[in-house]
Design a protein around this nucleic acid. Sequence first.
DNA 1: GCAATCTGACAGGAACGCCTGTCAGATTGA
DNA 2: TCAATCTGACAGGCGTTCCTGTCAGATTGC
Lengths: 207, 207
Amino acid sequence: MASTRSYGGQSADERVAARRARLVEATITLLAEQGEARTTMTAACAGAGLTERYFYESFGSRDEALVAALETAASRIAETAVTAVAGSFGPPVDRVRAGLSAVLDLLGTHPALGRVVVLEATANAALRTRRRELLAWFGDIVAAESRTIYGERVWPPDRARLNAMAFVAGLAELVAAWLLDELDLTPERLVEIGTDLFAATAQRPDA
Amino acid sequence: MASTRSYGGQSADERVAARRARLVEATITLLAEQGEARTTMTAACAGAGLTERYFYESFGSRDEALVAALETAASRIAETAVTAVAGSFGPPVDRVRAGLSAVLDLLGTHPALGRVVVLEATANAALRTRRRELLAWFGDIVAAESRTIYGERVWPPDRARLNAMAFVAGLAELVAAWLLDELDLTPERLVEIGTDLFAATAQRPDA
DNA sequence: GCAATCTGACAGGAACGCCTGTCAGATTGA
DNA sequence: TCAATCTGACAGGCGTTCCTGTCAGATTGC
């Protein structure tokens, strides 16, 4: 039962990892294009070009695959943001803008990531649980970045984290509206609004 | 088929309205206590003490009932907020605090309303669509209130609306964490944070 | 009192998705 | 070459839910 031989020029571990990766990508695509309800186990297998048996080689259930897709998409977005801020310089507002621009560029190039993270991440109980953990994680990242950007003018850590979570959740809602073409939103306007909101929520009012 | 006689001392219209109201209340309770997935049509009927046929007397589908439950819960919360702000006086920050306090009191007394609006409102495609419309509506209300509270120091209408939507969505996320006992949140702290966030997002930074 | 109507209980069709099992054919290492 | 293993196709059980239909009993207007 347990694979051990090489096959098609790949070791057993490599084949399993490749199949898992294909399933995750197919799940991301399906979530983005068809929504959570239609992202069935069968559809994910079909999208990955694999049969149902291989699904349970990598995931214990449909929910596990959905969560893996969310984690993958969220990690790519977070990594983009952190890298952009770390590679930026200049006055605080420019560094924030750099991070937001990088994220919105990424979402423009890969809309599926945005749709998974801001539109479909709440469609399922397992996804919602993981989403809240990811939001807390984003909050920690944003709060930490805000301290390196603004220095002493930020809130104390506990409060900074809560403010950062509210900032991320609020901005995510506007991104959702943008992805759905609902309000007169553009990436440029989102960057502008996000930069202002970050400044307003990260800094203490008396600072 | 169409009811027209009186029965049990009530006219046909009254009976239909009463049954619908019971179904909506049962749906709210189920959403709050069992989650969207277990809020089945059958369960709503059982909760309302009605048989399945009466479900389709008032709703064309399960989704319609879920949406009606969300609308009812959201309206009660919005009404509470608007009434509290309208009945408050004093400096701006006090009026904002009055509105937030009233809402959190309501959620403390009727946790089901909060759970439906901030935890379960995204669990279903039909609910998500209605939720975004309600969020835009909340945004309009909050933006309008912010102008009466802060006067000329607020953003222009378009921008005020977007900021208000981000504020509501961000605060809703913190309320969700509170309802789930996840971060060291209390109603008092939420009021404090919400008041600060409102001030930070409603007013122009240079005002 | 009686026919018409309303109500509650319940059965079950139809559809769907998750997950498991079987089986023939392809690929490998010896 | 050949046995062992890996792969893809597919069938189908199981459980669930939505929604419709039937039917006996309760309540009404006349």
